[in-house]
C-alpha cells in the first residue's frame, strides 16, 4: 500500500508541461514535491496567487504570502497576485487545467463528499464546490478506506455532497480508478496490492478488464 506521499507521487505523473494546477489542502499539496524534472507547471492557490513556489527558508516566512492551507509559501519568478474574485474567475471560468482534492467519500456516479460530517465536523467547503463544479479535469487523492477500515469508495455518498457527477479519476493508497458509466474502472494497483484486496475494500461497483498492472514509480 502507498502512503500519502506515494499517492502524491503517482498523481504527479499526471501533470503535463504548461499546465495550471490547483492543489487542495491535505494530500494534494504534497504533489508539489514530486513534479517531474522535465516539465513545468504553475500552481494556482485559491487565495490569490498563480505561480506558487515552495515553502520559504527558515527566517524568511512572510505573513503576506500564504497558500489555501494558510501555510507560508514563496512565489516563483513570473508569479502573479490577484484578488479572490479574479481567483475564482480562473477556477469557475475553466482556465485551470487540473484540480486535485481530497475526499471523505466518492461515489460511482462521480459524486464527491469532502466538507461536512453532520453533527461532528463542519469546517466548511472553502473553494471545493467552485472547483468541482467547474473543473474539467478532477483527480481525487484519498485513502481507500477510513480509519475503521470501512470503504470510502462507494455506490452512493452518505455524507453531504460537495459536487455531483464530477469526479473522473481517483488515486488511493491502493489503486488508480477511473469513474465512468456509473462504476469504478480499475486502471492500476498499488505495488504489492492485489485486485481481490481492492475489490474487498471497495463498496462501489468495480469493473476489472483483463490484467491490471502495478503503478510505476
Amino acid at each position: 500500500m502507498l502512503d500519502k506521499n506515494g499517492i502524491a507521487k503517482r498523481i504527479a505523473q499526471e501533470l503535463q508541461d504548461g499546465w495550471y494546477v490547483n492543489l487542495g489542502i491535505g494530500i494534494p499539496t504534497l504533489i508539489a514535491n514530486y513534479i517531474p524534472q522535465d516539465i513545468s507547471v504553475e500552481f494556482q492557490s485559491e487565495n490569490g496567487i498563480l505561480g506558487m513556489g515552495p515553502f520559504p527558508f527558515e527566517g524568511e516566512e512572510d505573513p503576506d504570502m500564504i497558500n489555501a492551507g494558510k501555510q507560508t509559501i514563496t512565489a516563483m519568478p513570473g508569479a502573479s497576485i490577484f484578488d479572490s474574485a479574479t481567483s475564482f474567475a480562473m477556477i469557475r471560468g475553466r482556465h485551470v487545467n487540473l484540480t486535485v482534492l481530497g475526499a471523505m467519500e466518492v461515489a460511482q456516479n462521480g459524486d464527491i463528499a469532502n466538507w461536512k460530517i453532520p453533527g461532528k465536523m463542519v469546517k466548511g467547503m472553502g473553494g471545493a464546490m467552485d472547483l468541482v463544479a467547474s473543473a474539467e479535469n478532477i483527480i481525487v487523492a484519498m485513502m481507500h478506506t477510513n480509519r475503521k477500515g470501512a470503504s470510502k469508495i462507494l455506490k452512493q455518498c452518505s455524507l453531504p455532497l460537495t459536487g455531483v457527477g464530477c469526479v473522473t479519476k481517483v488515486v488511493t493508497n491502493m489503486a488508480v480508478l477511473e469513474v465512468k458509466d456509473g462504476a469504478f474502472h480499475l486502471l492500476e494497483r498499488a505495488p504489492g496490492v492485489s485486485v481481490e484486496e481492492i475489490q474487498a475494500a471497495t463498496e462501489g461497483d468495480v469493473v476489472v478488464s483483463g490484467e491490471v498492472g502495478e503503478m510505476k514509480f
Partner: peptide, 22 residues
C-alpha cells in the same frame, strides 16, 4: 466557532468561497 455553531449559539451560513467573493 465550531463549538458555538454545533451548539446552535451561532448562526452560520457556509458559502462556497467563489460565491462569497462574487
Amino acid at each position: 466557532f465550531e463549538q458555538q455553531m454545533l451548539s446552535g449559539e451561532l448562526e452560520v451560513e457556509l458559502t462556497p468561497q467563489g460565491t462569497l467573493a462574487e
